[in-house]
Amino acid sequence: MENILQISLVLFLLILGYFFGSYREKRHFRNLQLREKQVLNMPIANIGRNLPADITETKLVVGIVVISIDYFKKISAMLRNLVGGRITVYESLLDRSRREAILRMQEEAMEWGASQVLNVRLETVAIGGRFGGKTDPGSIEVIAYGTGIK
C-alpha cells in the first residue's frame, strides 16, 4: 500500500512537472524573443580594450537570475546520465537562464541610457537540488555583468 502511494506520488509529480514545466518554458522563450527584439540595437561585447574615444560616462550593469528545472526534466536527465549523450533538457535550462541574465543586464543598461555594454562576463553556478549534490543541480544561477558606456 505504501509503495503504491509512493509510486503514484512520483507519477503525479512527473506529470505536474511535465505539463507545467514545458508550458512555463515555452512561455519564457516567447517572452525572451520578444524582449530580445527590443534590445537589438544595443550591442554588447566581451572585449574592452579599444575603447571609443568619446565616452562620457560609465556604469556597472548587472543581471541576475536563478532558474529551476522541473521534476520531469530532472528525472529524464538522471535517466539520460545512465546512457550518456546530450542532455537536452539541461541545455534549454542553461540557454534560457543565460539569455535572461544578459537581457536583464541589457535592460538595466538601456534604462540608464547606455549606447553599448563592454567587457561582459558571465558567471554560472549550479545550486544543488533537494536531492543534493553537484551532480543533479536543481537550479542554475547566472550573473551577467558589464560596463555600460554613454
Binding site: L16, S68, Y71
Partner: peptide
Amino acid sequence: LKNIVGGELTSYT
C-alpha cells in the same frame, strides 16, 4: 515546491 514545476525562483534572485 517550485522545483517541481520549474521556472524562475524569484526569492533566490
